[in-house]
Simulated assay, not measured.
Amino acid sequence: MGSTYHIYDPRMRQMLLMNAEIERIATGFRWAEGPVWFGDANCLLWSDIPNDRIMRWWPSGEVDVYRSPAHYTNGHTRDRQGRLVSCEHGRRCISRTEYDGGVSILADRFDGKRLNSPNDVVVKSDGSIWFTDPDYGIMSDYEGHRAESEQGVCRVYRLDPATGALIAVAEDYERPNGIAFSPDEKRLYIADTGFTHREGGPHHILVHEVIDGVRLGSGRVFAVIEPGFADGFRLDEHGNVWTSCGSGNGVAVFAPDGTPLGKIEIPEMVSNVAFGGPKRNRLFVTATSSVYSLYLGVRGHSIL
């Protein structure tokens, strides 16, 4: 499959391997999302949300079903102990897959009311779990179960797994979506995709200073995605942001100061990305019905 790169800044050229092509490694899904790499198992997991299953890819090329039903999981990450942490639309919760294969619900309510439909999640090096909670999973029966929002707003939360305490760290988002920390964890990036259901709505990534490791300062616009909108994203070892472009059909790359570095075109609407492979220099891209990969000249950031 041919690769099309748009280079806006010389730094982008250094991160690409001009002899590495974009590969479609799996296909046949309804909406692929939430890729996460398991280096110790040498496999990639991701969600096929409308089909209510978690899929798994092996470097041999084999693709199988990791879990079905999966309560309409969306975003995934791993905690400091290597366990899978998932956002579930179906049970409107954050869950964790234990070592014995059992699944525990970590949080499903705030102030006594059910969460909306947790969307994307990241784990900080102190073990705290930070996640976004828009209402996409309860807007219809396609990616969850249609229901009214009990919260009435869409927030970003921090969960302390030791105490179970859940606090709201941001409430001024229309539809918070992708989320990721800078490598030094001094900043938290959060996408707002209100554009998907309101003409003129936000389609940008905001960045917040992390205060005392538990609170967020006021957000400022880090990058506006044009065309499209940021869904899921991850950072590389240098703090560059690799983000999906939504309807822009590609992966956009921004420097830590927000300078656009370039874009990689993908043949389908992109939902999310993850770094993986033995050297973490392989970018995995979930895009509507398929999963793509591309070897890079840079490694992804990981707390594991």
Rank of each mutant, 00 (worst) to 15 (best):
R282T: 13
F38P: 01
S140F: 10
M18P: 09
E185M: 01
E143Q: 15
C245Q: 10
D40E: 11
G102S: 15
G34P: 14
Y5D: 15
V153D: 15
D100K: 06
P35A: 13
G200F: 05
A107G: 07
R83H: 00
R83M: 01
S149V: 03
G61T: 04
T193P: 00
V210A: 06
G127M: 04
V221I: 03
L206I: 10
V291E: 15
E21T: 15
L45P: 02
L16Q: 13
A162F: 02
L283C: 04
V65T: 13
V221C: 04
H6K: 11
K279G: 03
R30W: 10
R114Q: 05
R30N: 11
I94K: 01
K263W: 09
H6T: 14
P202R: 12
C93A: 15
G246P: 15
V65R: 08
P161I: 02
S271A: 13
G219N: 02
K263E: 09
I167D: 14
T288C: 14
Y99Q: 11
L45M: 00
I54V: 07
L294I: 14
A168C: 05
S60M: 03
H76A: 12
A26K: 07
G39Y: 01
S149C: 02
C245L: 11
K263S: 11
I179V: 11
G28V: 07
H203R: 08
E209T: 04
P260F: 15
V156C: 04
E265Y: 07
V251S: 05
I129S: 00
D212Q: 12
L283G: 03
W130H: 00
S293P: 13
A168S: 09
S271I: 11
D126H: 00
G39M: 01
V253D: 01
R215D: 14
I54G: 01
F110W: 14
D52Q: 02
G137D: 14
C154P: 06
H197R: 02
L235G: 09
K186C: 10
S290L: 11
D108Y: 14
G137L: 12
E98R: 01
A168P: 12
P260K: 09
V85E: 05
C245V: 08
L45T: 01
N249M: 05
E143P: 14
I105W: 06
G213D: 05
H203M: 03
G219P: 09
P202L: 14
P176V: 10
R234P: 03
D257K: 12
G34M: 12
G248K: 09
H197W: 02
D172S: 10
N281M: 10
R109Q: 14
I266C: 06
R158I: 04
P278M: 06
N281W: 07
P176H: 04
E150C: 06
T286F: 11
E143A: 10
Y99D: 11
I179Q: 08
Y292N: 02
S247E: 10
Y136Q: 07
T196A: 08
I303K: 00
P134E: 10
Y189F: 12
N74W: 01
M12V: 08
D9Q: 02
V36C: 00
I211V: 03
F131M: 03
Y72S: 01
D141S: 06
M55N: 05
K113Q: 08
